[in-house]
Every structure is written in C-alpha cells, then in structure tokens.
C-alpha cells in the first residue's frame, strides 16, 4: 500500500509517562550504553567531568526523553533513572 504524502513523512513520539530523566553524575563510569541505545536519540555526553573523570550523559533537550526507561535498565551503574514528576501522574 503506498503511503500518502500530504502528511509530512514524520513519526510522532509521545511521552510514555510524566517522568523526569535523572542522572547521578558521580556514579557514571562512562560506558555510553544509555546514549547509544536510547531509541529516540535523546542523550549526549555532557561537557563536564565527574569525580571519575568521565563525561556523564545529559539530555539533548528538555522534551527529548519520552520516558521508555531503557537507559535506566541498561545502565550498569545505576547512574541513570526516571523520576516521577511531582505534578504528574503515576509512573507507568
């Protein structure tokens, strides 16, 4: 079936949950898993160096994260997690 085109060829990705992306910078050992495997490419290395001398990840932009939680799971160091927003609803 051919795709119609009047719609721009975009993919919309909605936030899965009202969550805030958090990093415990000093826990990060710099493996880069979260950046590599983020499905929406929301993360990048930050400029700063942490206590272990690596660049912990940061969000590319405020609303880049859709809250899928893969980074939280794949981080071997418990450095990255999602936090339920105070105002928002339940996580998951």
């Amino acid at each position: 079936m051919s795709k119609g085109r009047s719609m721009a060829p975009v993919v919309k990705r909605k936030k899965l949950a009202e969550v805030e992306w958090k990093v415990i910078e000093d826990f990060c050992k710099g493996c880069g898993f979260c950046i590599e495997f983020c499905p929406v490419d929301a993360l990048e290395e930050s400029e700063k160096l942490n206590a272990k001398g690596v660049h912990p990840p940061k969000l590319k932009s405020e609303d880049a994260c859709i809250g899928c939680g893969l980074c939280e799971r794949i981080c071997p160091d418990f450095a990255v997690h999602l936090e339920t927003k105070e105002s928002g609803g339940e996580r998951e």
């Binding site: 079936m1 051919s2 795709k3 119609g4 085109r5 009047s6 719609m7 060829p9 993919v11 919309k12 990705r13 909605k14 936030k15 899965l16 859709i66 899928c68």
Partner: peptide, 17 residues
C-alpha cells in the same frame, strides 16, 4: 493505546495516524 509512536496511516492514505 499505550504505543508512543504515531506514523501516517497507509490504509487511510496518510490522512490519519
């Protein structure tokens, strides 16, 4: 309902998502 990804609907010739 829970899927976060929306793409143009081929069946509706891209008129819907």
């Amino acid at each position: 309902d829970v899927c976060p990804v929306e793409v143009p609907d081929e069946f509706n010739m891209g008129l819907t998502w």
